[in-house]
Design a protein around this nucleic acid. Structure first.
Lengths: 302, 302
DNA sequence: TAGTTGTATAAATAAAAATCTATACATTTA
DNA sequence: TAAATGTATAGATTTTTATTTATACAACTA
């Protein structure tokens, strides 16, 4: 930790560096528009604090001692540190304004805050315009190039995107904790076909995964209800209206709910969340900073 | 030149760096034994001056922004600069005391000040004990190991020394400006044998050179006077009592004298001044610093 | 040697930076 | 919801730093 005692003030450093450069106390005074005694006194104090002679005066000439030269070099080093800092800070100032537009598949809404909140703390002046909706809507927005970034579980056909694997998405079967399947191990897919389900609507990413899964495993689920919200599904499942298939991110939201994850064969359905952007969309400074952030801190290590 | 405006004070840097390290304003206050509002205010001021948010406070947690991280890195750099400076200065403090003992052949006394004065200005606290005498005395002192350094025109036999060529010593023939040899070109050595000379005493370096020179050129000079001082010789020569043979360093001491250098064949007698020290003598810190100085700034480039 | 130039010291003052107390506000925890 | 914890603001005060004027001194320069 920086030591304040025995450390000359910034002003004193300035005076001394000017002295070294002009070898004259009165010249320093003139250049900095202050009186000669002021310079005299400050420099003397500084040398006293450092307990070292930094210069000598012989007649009317100023000689910088070796110790003084060392101090001068240190000042120059500090000077460049400050200059570089200024340049860095100016770069950050470019990030103090601007809006980052991100569109998120609603199933991913539970994790977006984890991702976004560190970024927002680091760049507190930025605005984020967040659009949360189902996959179909995301794809529409992606095609009409409305946002900087999209978070989807896989990339749609027909659009050039740059994508980065992000976080693993696991779809699990949930039930009320009093449901008969609870605590049963290795439930077969076939048995599932006899229970009613509450599912997300057509066009949602979750629904898409489920349908693909059912097709490939050759099963058909009973669909008692279709709801556009994961949260609502959880409530109906909790009231034992039926089973649900949800991303595990939507669960364990802290509240000790009545929901239980079932141990079904071939589950969870694993897929990947991707963050993507259109190849031809020009990155704003802010967007590019966000891109760096995602790559450095969220890129999935395979 | 260091910019005082928009530059945070050293104290503010200290506060901020402590903040980064402990992520809490009240913790900083506690650690530095000041009140919490004081820290709050100073940090706020600092951020205002830099026109950048360095941290944000959310609830009771402190988050350092990216800009803040940059500032922190800068502070660390400044910190190490100061630490290194302290170490350097402490090394110089070792040189604030101590006596440097130097013995100089009196013929070289005219140049010793040129050599010594920059050194003394750079290390103003040191003492120099200077012995000026003729060569014989120098050699005696060298043998009894009395001084750190010796300046002689060549090394004596029988003592282990480390020597460094230094400055060229040219012995020239001088006369009063009204002397008949003045303005004559190419005076032969033979003609010199008919004029009386005023010379340095036996045992002086100059005398040694002259004798060696006469021997090798097979001439003999008329010796009217022997004097132990170059300055005195100059006065007698100026009064036209005789010719003199002196180091050119002893001349052109500013005063527009009555002395003229004669254009004698085989003159000047060139030889070398050496600075030397006994091999087995242990160097004090001060002596070693002087040694470095001589090597870096006075070593004769051949 | 007188005048000029450059630096040092003293004493007073000004400006600035840093601090405190008291209080209010906000968030988290019990 | 009350208590605890952490931060912000206001206003007054203290401390430190910086500066000034006036004067003295010292060393060059003409």
């Amino acid at each position: 930790m920086l030591n304040t005692k025995n450390t000359p003030s910034i002003r004193q450093l300035q005076l001394f560096s000017t002295l070294v450069e002009h070898q004259s106390i009165s010249k320093v005074a003139e250049l900095l528009h202050i009186s000669q005694p002021s310079v005299s006194i400050q420099l003397k104090k500084m040398a006293e604090q450092l307990e070292t002679e930094l210069y000598t005066i012989s007649g009317r000439k100023v000689f910088i001692t070796e110790a003084g030269q060392a101090v001068y070099r240190a000042i120059q080093s500090i000077d460049t540190t400050f200059s570089n800092l200024q340049i860095e800070l100016n770069a950050f100032k470019g990030l103090q304004a601007g809006t980052l537009k991100i569109a998120v598949d609603s199933t991913a809404q539970y994790l977006i805050s984890k991702v976004l909140s560190p970024f927002c703390h680091r760049y507190p002046k930025i605005d984020v315009q967040l659009t949360i909706n189902n996959r179909q809507t995301m794809v529409k927005r992606l095609k009409s190039n409305e946002d900087d970034f999209y978070i989807l579980s896989n990339s749609p056909a027909g659009v050039d995107v740059i994508q980065m694997p992000f976080i693993t998405n696991s779809l699990v079967v949930v039930a009320n904790k009093k449901h008969e399947l609870t605590r049963q191990p290795h439930i077969s897919l076939n048995r599932l076909q006899h229970y009613p389900f509450i599912l997300r609507e057509q066009g949602s990413g979750t629904r898409q995964h489920i349908e693909r899964f059912c097709k490939s495993h050759n099963i058909k689920l009973i669909e008692r209800m279709t709801i556009q919200s994961n949260e609502a599904i959880k409530q109906f499942v909790a009231e034992n209206i039926g089973l649900g298939i949800l991303s595990h991110h939507t669960l364990n939201q802290g509240e000790s709910s009545d929901l239980v994850v079932l141990d079904v064969d071939n589950f969870p359905i694993n897929s990947q969340w991707y963050i993507m952007r259109r190849t031809e969309r020009k990155l704003t400074l802010l967007a590019s900073t966000f891109d760096d952030y995602m790559q450095n801190e969220w890129q999935l290590k395979s």
